[in-house]
Design a protein around this nucleic acid. Structure first.
Lengths: 174, 174
DNA sequence: ATTGTTGCAAAGAGTTTGCAATGCT
DNA sequence: AGCATTGCAAACTCTTTGCAACAAT
């Protein structure tokens, strides 16, 4: 009994009106300014809170859950709401500046898009730490498998769950 | 503001009392009977509805969402509830007879565990079809990456999202 | 002045659980 | 009889949204 039909907010600027240059690269750290400029092209206005969130998100460059980001932003801007965090992250995803991951059945995690290359994740089940890695061989095999099945690849996601080096050592010490 | 502390039901039989043989292989199709026997060792009683669900789940051998399974079982046992589906699937997972996947941010999907070998998935974003595949090369590379990072692997999950052969053809025909 | 943004509270979606009635053993 | 199972409704968690007040242009 689930209806996933979402009644869109009528205020939303239609995608075809969005700037093509909105997909900013943040390899150079002025991604924030660029994004803020891009906002105008979507009919957005400047917002101090949004700027703080985005700046923090870019600087930290971690795999944030909404809760984590909320807690950190709260230290900077006391009365921030979850809604604003959610809305800002959604904006970043829409703009191609952030990407969502669902590791296992946990909350969504948001990561900054700042590398051309696709990368995968080692997820520590003890401490929650996330380690990125890139492996061309795996990528190639994935594409080979897809080809075998005549499958048109849009994206892929690989997670390795387990215990990170640090947590293994910590365990032994006890 | 999330508290993931779960107040356990006191009725639950403690894990150390569970049968060691509960992890049944369903490669041979009598997995159902075996499971039903195993239930007794966990202090469970026979239940017609549960049996129907499990039997159906085993026979169909698909990647079920709870909703899908609910709808199909409803045809067999009219007044079944979501709770029962959820509880039965949880039981199967606890017994090692089923496994959960979260493809993207969609509902959980439950699949029967009936192969020794780990397999990965091609997920069609058009029709929702799921194609399993096994690739030793990828497995080996994954283990190599983990070793490099001194990471102790517990499990891993790889999904390739895209459009399946059938949906590609269908699109062209229109 | 117009239109976007925010916080709040409420609503959704998926899942779990307490409870009284019912079913197994 | 004693305890597990079920359906139902309510609770829970994560996320989205309607709305009135506020801020940017």
């Amino acid at each position: 009994m689930k209806m996933k039909v979402k009644i869109k907010n009528k205020k939303e600027v239609p995608p075809e009106k969005w700037s093509k240059r909105i997909r900013v690269s943040t390899r150079n750290r002025n991604g924030l300014e660029r994004l803020l400029k891009c906002q105008a092209k979507r009919g957005l206005k400047f917002s101090k809170k949004r700027a703080v969130i985005i700046e923090h998100f870019i600087k930290a460059d971690r795999h944030y859950t909404v809760e984590q980001l909320y807690n950190e932003i709260k230290e900077i801007v006391p009365n921030i709401s979850y809604s604003t965090i959610y809305r800002t992250l959604k904006l970043l995803v829409d703009c191609g500046m952030a990407r969502t991951h669902h590791f296992g059945d946990t909350d969504a995690r948001f990561e900054l898009v700042h590398k051309e290359q696709h990368h995968d994740h080692l997820v520590c089940e003890k401490c929650g730490r996330i380690i990125e890695f890139i492996h061309d061989g795996i990528e190639k095999f994935q594409n080979a498998v897809a080809k075998e099945h005549n499958f048109l690849v849009k994206s892929h996601e690989l997670q390795i769950f387990g215990v990170c080096k640090r947590c293994q050592l910590r365990k032994r010490q006890r």
